[in-house]
Amino acid sequence: MTTDFARKDRAAFGLSGKVVVVVGGGQMPGDTTGNGRATAMLAARHGAEVVAVDINFDSAQETANLIIAEGGKAYPVQADVAEKQDCQHIFDTVMARSGRVDGMVYSAAVNPPFDLGTNSMTTENFNRGINVNMLGAYHCNLFAAECMQKNEGASAGSIVNFSSIASLKNEIGLNIGIMPYALGKCGLNYITELTAVQFADAGVRANTLMLGPIDSTLGNHDSQELFGHTPDEVDEAYGEVVKLKMGRASTWETAYAALYLLADESRFMTGQQIRLDGGAALVR
C-alpha cells in the first residue's frame, strides 16, 4: 500500500499483501462474535492473509472457513499460548507457510474458574490465568517482532494487544475471580510499551487497545458462568460503568479499532494505550 495519504483514490485501511496473525482468533460457543474472530474477519475483508490461532483447532478452522467463504485468505494454527514452545510454533509455521508476518493481534484471554462462595482459586488456575493473559502475550510479542524486523521498509509491522480497563479500575480486580485477568492485563500493558521501545528502530510498532464493556462471547460467558449473572444482569452490570448512552460496544467496533492500528494509517503511533470503553475509565 502507498503511504501517500493525500491521494483521493487511496483505499483506506488496506491490508493487501500483509499477513496478519490473530492469536485468539477462534472463540467459545455463544450468540455473539468474539473480539478475535471479528478482528480476523475484518482484516481479511481489507485484504490481509489471516492466520487464526486458537487452543481449539476446530474453532480456529471455523474462523478460517468463514473468511474463505467470503473470498478471503486464511488458515488455522493450533497453539496453547501458556506454553512458550507453542508460541514459537505459531510464528515458525507462519514464516514457513506465508514467508512473513506484518501484523499480530493478541486477543487470547482467560478468566480461570474460582469458588464464588469462598472467593478462592487454586494455584494452578491462578497460574494458568497469568500464563495466558501475560506470559503468552510476552512470547507472542517477542516472536512476532523478531519476524517483522526482517521486513523491508520504514514500517515493518504492527502489533496490537487487547488489554482491558480492568488493569486501570482496581475495584474490578478486588475479587479473586478476575484477579489473574486484571494482573495479566497490567503486565500486557507494560509488555506493549517495552516491545514498542525495543523494536522501534526496526520499524515495528506495538500498541494496546484497552477494552471496556464489549458485548463479546468471553465477557458474556464468564459473567454468567463465573459470577452467576443472567444475560439481563450482565447488560445491567456493564451498563453501570459506561458513560455513553449507547451501552456496550460490539466486537466489530473492537475490530475496526484494531484495523486502524494494523494499517499504515497509524504508522506514526506506537507504545500507546487506546481506550475503547465508552468512557468507563473516566471515573477512577
Rank of each mutant, 00 (worst) to 15 (best):
C186M: 15
T192D: 03
N151L: 09
V110Q: 04
I178V: 15
A108N: 05
K84S: 10
A109H: 07
G184F: 00
K169G: 00
A96G: 10
E171I: 11
V105T: 05
V94L: 07
G153H: 00
Y138P: 05
D102C: 00
E146L: 09
S167R: 09
I178F: 11
N131R: 13
D86P: 01
M95Y: 02
F91M: 09
R128Y: 13
P112N: 07
E124N: 14
S107A: 15
N151C: 08
Q88M: 14
V94P: 02
A144Q: 04
S163G: 15
P180H: 02
C147G: 00
F114H: 10
Y181S: 04
L183K: 08
C87E: 06
G177R: 01
S107V: 10
A108G: 07
C147T: 02
A145K: 00
H139Y: 15
I176F: 05
P112H: 03
N125R: 14
E124F: 14
N131W: 09
T192F: 00
N133G: 05
Q149M: 15
P180R: 00
L183S: 09
C87D: 08
N161H: 04
R97L: 11
V197Y: 11
V197M: 15
C140H: 02
G129S: 12
K150R: 12
K84G: 06
T195H: 02
S107T: 08
T118Y: 11
I176D: 03
P180N: 07
S158V: 04
G177N: 08
L194S: 13
N151V: 07
V197T: 15
A144D: 03
F162S: 12
M179I: 03
N127V: 14
V101A: 01
F126T: 08
F162A: 12
K84I: 15
N111G: 04
P180G: 04
K150E: 10
Y181Q: 06
G103A: 05
I90V: 09
S98H: 01
Q85Y: 12
M148L: 12
S158E: 02
A182P: 07
F162Y: 13
A108R: 02
G177V: 05
N189W: 10
D92N: 15
L142V: 14
K84N: 12
A108D: 03
C140I: 02
N133A: 07
S120I: 02
F199D: 00
M95F: 05
K150W: 04
L188Q: 10
G103R: 05
D86E: 07
S164W: 06
N125L: 15
N125Y: 13
S167F: 10
M121A: 12
C186G: 13
C140Q: 02
